[in-house]
Design a protein around this nucleic acid. Structure first.
Lengths: 213, 213
DNA sequence: CTTTTATGAATGAAGG
DNA sequence: CCTTCATTCATAAAAG
């Protein structure tokens, strides 16, 4: 029913008679998802909707704030307040740092650049950069890289964490288990081109949205 | 550079040495896109980012239009419901493992044996045993024990809460510097050049939004 | 069909 | 770096 269920494509894949050979082709270690034209179209449409909505909202915002200015009314950071305005009291405190989407994007980008463990100096830099996108401390950054690396590594070893439909052959472990061919599976260099895709940069729009602050 | 290039995956695919065979396989008539797990996950996240940003923009709009209403101006609450529902908003849907009754029974039994720490080796054993009763991975087993233990522990502590009242204010600042608490308000100076990158639009949505004009 | 609950999975942080 | 724990998120299943 009208939902785009990305993670379930691989399931559907098994039902697409036309693509079955894909499985065997890749043996057990390499695992890929296959999308049909239809699914691709669905995805395309989904993103399109987001793009359109955002664009329209930005336009709308422009118009509205223009009026606001005329009326002498200036809306402040309406959404920021409800959360932390209560300075003294920590009622509903989430004590765990959570990266904002923007911070995450940046961190991922840095991580993908491959320069392994960031030095102390580097962490300082990164931290101060990320501060512009939300609260963050050096410890947060440090931990993030530690975890990111460890889990990235582990993920290679156990890539098939959850795909019920795929490995139906129910056989006992082959000696070497999953991960067998390190260099084939992942091109560490530029795993995919999309990594950079979300590096939003639109000076004009940016300044527009900043008006909310 | 920074763009969402959905329609070009098939092109890039040719450059992914690991997936080349795909081409020949399908001859010339059948054409499919291939993604690795990693790429899939990335995509999922990116769309998630879009969703987040859109939500925030919508929130902004709500707040602003609320003001507008007070001023007697009616911009309408058109976008939220119609759009979000039409696009599903549940873009990120992932499947998840569900233990079969048999597997659950076995797991419970092992857990009750008290051997708290499931060793890696042990997990491998358990997993291969359970495979006979349904699809399962080592990660599933690992997670199950983690969760089982954690929740078993919590159940013991909660029932013994004798002080139903004052627990809210007790939360004094944790001296720990791990306090960086963002609670996402970000998104401000970010972005949005997607509109030009996505060279397609969603007609019906556009018409919905046209009311903004 | 909508809301609630149970629980698999993800992840920030701590310890060694 | 690796493992473990605690907390949170998301979703399948159950309840209304």
């Amino acid at each position: 029913e009208g939902e785009v269920r990305i993670m379930e494509w691989e399931k559907q894949e098994n039902q697409q008679q036309q693509q079955q050979q894909q499985q065997q082709q890749n043996g057990g270690s390499l695992y890929v998802q296959v999308m049909t034209d239809e699914q691709m179209e669905l995805l395309r449409r989904q993103i399109s909707v987001y793009a359109t909505i955002c664009e329209q909202l930005v336009e709308m915002h422009k118009a509205i704030t223009a009026q606001q200015d005329l009326a002498g009314m200036r809306l402040g950071n309406l959404y920021c307040d409800p959360l932390m305005s209560s300075s003294g009291h920590k009622i509903t405190a989430r004590q765990r740092w959570t990266p904002t989407p923007m911070q995450l994007q940046i961190l991922e980008r840095i991580f993908d650049q491959g320069n392994g463990t960031p030095t102390k100096q580097k962490i300082k830099e990164i931290t101060s950069d990320l501060t512009q996108h939300g609260q963050i401390s050096e410890t947060n950054v440090y931990n993030w890289f530690q975890n990111r690396r460890a889990r990235s590594k582990r993920k290679q070893l156990v890539p098939a964490s959850n795909n019920p439909e795929s490995e139906v052959e129910t056989e006992v472990e082959s000696p070497k288990e999953t991960k067998a061919k390190p260099e084939d599976i992942h091109s560490h260099e530029n795993p995919n081109p999309w990594t950079e895709d979300l590096s939003f940069r639109s000076p004009e729009i940016s300044s527009d949205l900043r008006a909310f602050d």
